[in-house]
């Protein structure tokens, strides 16, 4: 039997993370792609940090930043009556930060492929930047946005280190599928771990096929060589 509460939790977490990251990531990716500000490179580096940082390090800092002793954690506890860490909301914040590059980078690659003169044409025709983004940039970068959504979703499903650090292992609240597998192995229940693993393996293959067919249809390498 698969551990359905863990699967449902993971899917919920991945879904909400993806929605939030598209809403935040589209303007951020557009700004990073088109800005002439020199300090944008620092922002870009920070966005990419989760790619190279060990998840436990990110998790540790989040635990410190969101924990009961921190100003944010204290404020949250006072406002809502429950702590931010070891909760779904805490997990969501961690997932958003951890998957940020997986949302932003494919969109940046796609946005960079848009002919700059189209943006200039839109500006000269009297349109503001949000209109240009919605009517010129996004329609030309649909494959990149779809890739970002798929990768964010998949990456969130599979995260482990950050989730364990920030969320702990509370069944139905913060126990995601990958923690479930770890638990099963710790309990020597290899059969259960195998069932969940094969489900995740199949899911991953389907995701990659989806990404590469999107890429092929757009005729442009939206992953631009950075996804292994």
């Amino acid at each position: 039997m698969l551990d359905w509460p863990s699967i449902v939790l993971s899917v919920q977490l991945a879904f909400v993370t993806t929605i939030v990251l598209l809403a935040v990531g589209i303007p951020l990716a557009a700004w990073l792609t088109f800005t002439r500000a020199r300090w944008a490179v620092a922002v870009e580096a920070i966005v990419a940090l989760p790619l190279v940082l060990p998840p436990t390090v990110l998790g540790y800092y989040l635990l410190v930043a969101l924990g009961a002793q921190s100003p944010v954690g204290r404020w949250w506890t006072e406002t809502t009556g429950s702590p931010l860490v070891f909760s779904f909301t805490g997990l969501l914040i961690a997932s958003i930060l951890y998957s940020l590059p997986f949302a932003v980078q494919p969109m940046m690659a796609a946005f960079a492929g848009i002919d700059r003169r189209l943006l200039e044409a839109s500006a000269v025709l009297g349109r503001r930047w949000p209109t240009t983004l919605a009517r010129v940039v996004l329609p030309g970068a649909r494959a990149g946005v779809a890739t970002a959504a798929v990768l964010t979703f998949a990456h969130t499903i599979g995260e482990f280190g950050v989730v364990l650090m920030v969320g702990g292992n509370i069944p139905g609240v913060t126990r995601t599928v990958s923690i479930d597998i770890y638990d099963d192995v710790q309990a020597f229940d290899y059969a259960a771990a195998g069932r969940t693993s094969i489900a995740l393996l199949a899911f991953s293959v389907i995701v990659l096929i989806a990404v590469y067919s999107l890429q092929r249809r757009s005729g442009r390498p939206v992953l631009a060589g950075w996804v292994k």
């Binding site: 002919d115 003169r117 189209l118 200039e120 044409a121 839109s122 500006a123 000269v124 025709l125 009297g126 349109r127 503001r128 009517r135 010129v136 329609p139 030309g140």
Partner: peptide, 19 residues
Amino acid sequence: PARARGVGLLFQDHALFPH
């Protein structure tokens, strides 16, 4: 800004919105 100048610009290779 460009959008507020009220000018029209014709690009060398037209730059029509492809979609």
